[in-house]
Design a protein around this nucleic acid. Sequence first.
DNA 1: AACTACTCCTGGAGGC
DNA 2: TGCCTCCAGGAGTAGT
Length: 286
Amino acid sequence: MPELPEVETLRRGLSGALEGRRIVEAELLKPKIYEGLPGYSLADIVGATITAARRRAKYLILDLSNGLSLVIHLSLAGQIVVICPNGKKVAGGHPVPSYGSELPHRQTSVILRFDDGSILYLTDIRQFAHLWLAPTTEVMSIVPHERLGVEILSPEFSEAELRERLRQRPKAKLKPLLLDQSILAGLGNIYVDESLWEAGIHPLRTAGSLTDQETRRLYHAIRSVIDLALRRGVAQIVNGRAVVGATLPRIHGREASLCPRCGQPIEKMRVVGRGTYICRSCQKPP
DNA sequence: AACTACTCCTGGAGGC
DNA sequence: TGCCTCCAGGAGTAGT
């Protein structure tokens, strides 16, 4: 499930591989994914050059030289693979190559071809991903900017900021609160579990029940988990299970494994319909 | 405000 | 082997 570190890692890869490249062909194999504004079609991007790869929360934004931007949300299982002419591959989103090595896959939604021979495949086995095309100046109306909370990779995400946001929703349980993109932008199911485990806080605790010290621990846990994901490779989950041997996640998807900190068994529970993994010894219930 | 339920969708796992 | 059911989940919306 692509979360912020996965999207950011992909963005960096696309930035290196595609900036300055001109689109020579755009193929829409699954029209359902496309939600372009009225008056625009994917054909409008042909001939334009990619000038920048940006990101807001889990939205990936490709700016084009003709004043338009492609906005992509990979949702649950979206994957982007770029095959360069020298054989180099830039891939991200849903773990690669879990769709097999054959591209296009039958769930490939979009294929973009570039002037240097590079080919971009956007594939999504769940068909939940979204693609928009809009003038660059209107991108923030597509990305629900006003409804997105603070970027967890930005300087604005401070301990004081987290404390203030928790203070505004004192009765909310931490797991759904941290999943709420209008509070913090970028965390998803995996990294919420990882952060709460790192901080030693149970997902059903309410925001208002945290002590100052726990809030500080949670803040540093979120930062360190995201930093680790960006430095050491993103979390690898396939079909809800942690990939054997992966550095991350350390607790999510590892039911019946042992807590890396205390050695007690990791337990699975359901919180707001989401598979949630905890160590009952490190994360005391409310 | 806070929560639940439902929707979109496909593929993999497990039961028999 | 093969058919069936269940489950995974980001985000939006509707209802309580």
